[in-house]
């Protein structure tokens, strides 16, 4: 990994719910320009909470989240586990949303919308309604919507967890191609070891109760990663490494609980 510009710095971030539930404890995370970071961990480890803090949907109890250059309009793109499309709006109207909320008319940003749809391979479906699309295609629309403002950071919260294996692999490949083309920065929440290894260059392994970073695994396999990488010995080794780290995180929790 070469030296990259720093994009986001989270230092000593705590989040406490209801005065006692420690969703996150002392989270430190530096996100550099161009990083693909996976947050991997069991349920309740605070990975979604971390994402919501970065997105500004909640405030941390203590600690700091600092954006290099400040957080401006259009800096963030978000993809949820559900496609989260508006069923009454066509594909292009859905992709228009981030621009529309900033007061831009469809005509002003039609170029951006078409570009984003082309990026996800849906340029011929601009007038379709979400219900006419398959699960994978809906997710592509959701990704196009996240891309349309050309954000500095894309947050993805288990975006492919509800899809079938074949579609998920296809979308994994396409996401990497996109990332290669756009050089975008991604934080990707998942609880799949295989997915996190295939996609990311850094895996942040988190443990639960309290939610915290337990280990960081660097995936030093070169991009572009293709289907061959998925069946290579390197991939298997890295998966074992990530898997061990994840088990370590779960055991830490076990010791704590029994102590």
């Amino acid at each position: 990994m070469g030296q990259r510009d720093e994009l986001l710095q989270m230092s000593n971030v705590d989040k406490v719910f209801n005065g006692s539930v420690e969703a996150l404890k002392d989270l430190n995370l530096t996100v550099n320009q161009g990083d693909f970071i996976s947050l991997l961990g069991p349920s309740g480890c605070g990975k979604s909470t971390a994402l919501r803090l970065i997105a500004g949907l909640m405030r941390q109890t203590s600690g700091q989240i600092i954006w290099n250059g400040g957080l401006n309009e259009g800096d963030l793109g978000v993809v949820f586990q559900e496609p989260t499309l508006m069923p009454w709006a066509t594909v292009e109207q859905n992709v228009w949303l981030p621009h529309r909320l900033r007061g831009k008319s469809m005509d002003d940003v039609r170029g951006d919308i078409m570009w984003a749809l082309k990026m996800v391979g849906l340029e011929n479906f601009q007038k379709s309604y979400p219900r006419e699309l398959s699960g994978g295609m809906k997710m592509r629309v959701s990704i196009a919507r996240a891309l349309v403002t050309q954000p500095r950071l894309i947050l993805m919260d288990e975006p492919f967890a509800a899809l079938d294996e074949i579609t998920r692999h296809k979308l994994n490949n396409d996401l990497l191609m996109l990332r290669d083309k756009l050089k975008c920065t991604v934080i990707f929440v998942t609880h799949s070891v295989f997915e996190s290894v295939f996609l990311s260059d850094r895996i942040v392994v988190m443990a639960a109760r309290p939610g915290r970073v337990s280990a960081e695994v660097t995936v030093d396999a070169p991009y572009p990663r293709t289907e061959e990488f998925r069946t290579s010995a390197d991939y298997a080794d890295l998966c074992r490494k990530a898997s061990d780290a994840l088990h370590g995180a779960m055991n830490q929790h076990g010791e704590r609980a029994s102590a």
Binding site: A55, G56, E73, L76, V78, E82, P98, L101
Partner: peptide, 14 residues
């Protein structure tokens, strides 16, 4: 309204 859509609107500063 879908709670994810509500979050999305909030993130985009609606």
């Amino acid at each position: 309204t879908d709670h994810n859509l509500r979050d999305l609107y909030k993130i985009y500063g609606a």
